[in-house]
């Protein structure tokens, strides 16, 4: 009899665990659906390539699902951005190494375009965008000119609405540095986009 009760208890526990996984998956699906577009655009602005950006977002999603799905849902936002930003930094490191090792080879595809080239290209863009009086594209091009930390902090604070502490955790720097990067990013963007200032 005791054995039967133990078996029933074990069975109940197994069903509860299964339910909890499916609830987590449904909740995580809603969360990922709510952030995926912004995450993709952030990655695209950072690396300047659609395919690379899609890969980075998918990696971040997979890692979040695999390692942190069981964590409380309010932690997913900062965790997801921490993973994504770390992936973006890794991408930059790999690009630098690739450039050092194979810099003498002619670039054959968009994916092989290095960071410096992306930024050089971006330098020309704001002028074109200013002429067309289109703030959105000009802002994107101006963001691409910023140093990586400033851009990350600006996007996470302004677009994602993370607070200073969450941004510091996502970017991997001190809270004081977040404030400095944010201030410098806004100053630089306003300078680049001065034509669009309403004042």
């Amino acid at each position: 009899m005791a054995k039967l009760e133990a078996l029933e208890w074990y069975w109940d526990e197994a069903i509860t665990a299964e339910d909890s996984v499916s609830t987590n998956a449904a909740e995580l699906n809603r969360f990922l659906a709510s952030v995926e577009k912004r995450a993709f655009r952030m990655a695209e602005i950072a690396v300047g390539d659609r395919e690379e950006a899609l890969d980075l977002v998918q990696d971040a999603m997979c890692k979040l699902a695999e390692k942190y799905a069981a964590r409380p849902s309010d932690e997913w936002g900062p965790l997801f951005h921490r993973i994504l930003q770390s992936r973006i930094r890794d991408w930059y490191r790999r690009s630098k190494v690739r450039k050092r090792l194979f810099g003498w080879l002619p670039a054959t595809s968009a994916a092989e375009t290095d960071v410096a080239e992306v930024q050089d290209q971006a330098c020309v863009e704001p002028l074109r965008q200013l002429e067309s009086e289109n703030f959105g594209p000009a802002l994107i091009a101006a963001l691409q000119q910023l140093p990586i930390r400033q851009r990350q902090v600006f996007l996470l604070r302004v677009w994602e609405g993370l607070d200073v502490k969450q941004t510091a955790a996502a970017v991997g720097c001190a809270e004081g540095s977040v404030k400095t990067h944010h201030f410098r990013a806004i100053k630089a963007l306003r300078r680049i986009l001065s034509e669009y200032d309403s004042d």
Binding site: V21, N24, A25, L28, N29, L32, A33, E36, L54, V57, Q58, M61, C62, L64, A65, E66, K67, A69
Partner: peptide, 12 residues
């Protein structure tokens, strides 16, 4: 990408 990620929930 999302559905691929969701397949990994609880797989670890």
């Amino acid at each position: 990408a999302r559905s691929r990620a969701l397949e990994r929930v609880g797989s670890r």
